[in-house]
Amino acid sequence: MPEYMVIVVRSLFTFFFILLMARLMGKKQIAQLTFFDYITGITIGNMASAMAINASLQPIDAIIGVSIFVVLTILIARGAVGSMKFRKLVEGSPTILIRNGNILEKNLSKVNMSFDDLMMGLRNKNAFKLDDVETAVLETSGKITVMKKTENTPLTPKDIQLPVESEHTPSLVIVDGSVLTTRLRYLGYSEEWLHGEVMKQGASHFKDVYLAQIDSKGNVYVDLYDEGRKTEQVKQKPLLSAQLRKIQADMESFAIQTDNQAAKQMYYSQSRELQNLIDQINPYLKE
């Protein structure tokens, strides 16, 4: 077999082997990696590259070496989870750099960090003034976390006892011109209502829409295809029809949500009356 084909085969094998090893090691955010994880990753990467292109290295030797590193890494990670002392031995412990607004010079020296390094870490956390910082900690990942003084912390609605409506994950309801009907119904909306919403934003049909997303408050974000964007006014008659159907859909949604039987019956009754009205005026609203 030609040498270049040998490298191709070894490279493909190495790629999928390292992919398998990575899956076994589990997920870990890059920002949370310790120095040990970093060095282990580099070592495994060097072994993998050697296995791919070093023809004098037997693949089985590289596989054994990588497997040992992966197994040891998994065992150490599991040991760190189960034992605080072992975790401290392997990963170290966080170091406080600023306490009660005062810089701890000895701790800076202990972790070989200069004042410039400290200031850069604080600026990364939007703390440009030392006077704003209550506590700063160097984590085992090498990142600096900052707690600002209470008077310098931005107010939240909870701080001023302002009631706010909870936000939930928004959902896509149109992808590439196709309505995700099942998801739309699960969210409690009808296609007629959605059609009215996309018309407000310049679309004539669902096929004009590349993506549409609904948030937890019922607001719709619509992104049209570039060639389908319109600058002219949306036609009012079809829009009125869509708005009426939206109101009807809202009534049916309210009926489903309420546990009050009288209110439920009222919503359904009004929905039927509105449907009769729509049927009567619909011929006049068509363009």
Rank of each mutant, 00 (worst) to 15 (best):
E3I: 14
I7E: 06
S11F: 13
F13D: 01
F15H: 01
L19R: 00
L24A: 10
L24P: 11
M25N: 12
G26N: 04
A31E: 11
L33T: 08
L33C: 10
T34Y: 07
F35P: 09
F35V: 15
D37I: 07
Y38E: 03
Y38L: 14
I42E: 08
N46C: 12
N46V: 07
A48V: 08
M51Q: 03
S56L: 06
L72H: 00
V81A: 06
S83H: 09
K85F: 13
G92Q: 04
T95N: 05
R99H: 14
G101I: 05
N102F: 09
N102I: 13
L104M: 12
N107A: 02
S109G: 05
V111S: 05
M113T: 02
L118I: 04
L130G: 12
D132F: 11
E139I: 08
S141G: 14
V146N: 02
K148S: 11
E151G: 07
P154R: 00
D159N: 11
D159H: 09
Q161N: 14
L162C: 15
L162A: 15
V164K: 04
T169M: 13
T169Q: 09
P170N: 03
D176R: 01
V179N: 08
L187V: 12
G188A: 10
E192F: 11
L194Y: 10
H195E: 13
M199I: 04
Q201C: 01
G202V: 08
S204K: 11
K207I: 07
V209E: 01
Y210T: 08
L211H: 06
Q213H: 00
D215V: 02
D215E: 03
G218S: 08
V220P: 05
Y221A: 06
Y221L: 05
V222I: 11
E227P: 06
G228E: 15
K230C: 10
E232I: 09
K237I: 05
K237P: 04
K237G: 03
L239I: 07
L244S: 02
R245S: 10
R245M: 14
I247T: 13
I247H: 10
Q248P: 05
A249G: 13
D250T: 10
F254G: 07
K264H: 13
Q265G: 10
S271A: 15
E273K: 13
L274H: 05
Q275R: 03
L277C: 11
D279H: 08
Q280V: 01
Q280E: 09
N282Y: 03
E287T: 13
